[in-house]
Design a protein around this nucleic acid. Sequence first.
DNA 1: TCGGTAAATTGCGATACTGCGATATAGTCG
DNA 2: CGACTATATCGCAGTATCGCAATTTACCGA
Lengths: 95, 95
Amino acid sequence: MGVFKALAHPTRLAILSWLKDPESFPPQDQPAASVGVCLKHIQARADVSQSTASQFMAVLQRAGLVTCTRIGQWSYYRRNEEVIASLRASFDLAV
Amino acid sequence: MGVFKALAHPTRLAILSWLKDPESFPPQDQPAASVGVCLKHIQARADVSQSTASQFMAVLQRAGLVTCTRIGQWSYYRRNEEVIASLRASFDLAV
DNA sequence: TCGGTAAATTGCGATACTGCGATATAGTCG
DNA sequence: CGACTATATCGCAGTATCGCAATTTACCGA
């Protein structure tokens, strides 16, 4: 269960929580609710450099917690609710 | 929420899971069900050195996930079910 | 094709974690 | 007290993580 490692960083945990409400981010070309939130907006709210934001999302993605959809030059991230739901289910077993 | 950091290590996560069934450990002076499991038994099952086992339990203890009761020369560790239950409750908020 | 933007990747110093042996502390029993 | 056991702490080397600037890759519009 390497998921906890991805959740261990407070900023990554916060990002995952922010993505529950994609509409709270600034407007963007694609609808945040369906396709996800643009990296730039995540970076801005997390107040980290572009490379750090990209790496944070890569870790969350490798853990399966988010998915990435690239449209044009933008990467949109959204929660993988299926994986998170199964994580919640297996939480009792592991913890 | 530094708890996830404590759960990030696979062995620590396993130990916490093992402590759900304290009776599965070898017999000891004190009843495992009520007071907890002796460090020696945890160390043996985790197959790590004494110092590593002690440090693992210190991390879990600092995170509030387990409590330690010292009786004589033995340290008995048991799950802090209250904290774990509230963790489970706040899991939905954070994740 | 060129200049600009978005994002991923690379390389780096700093810091933290890992696991262990060695040592220190604390308790037990004669 | 002295030998022994159990546990905690210290110090260390190896490894991983952190966060960034710089670079590279990818896409767009003119």
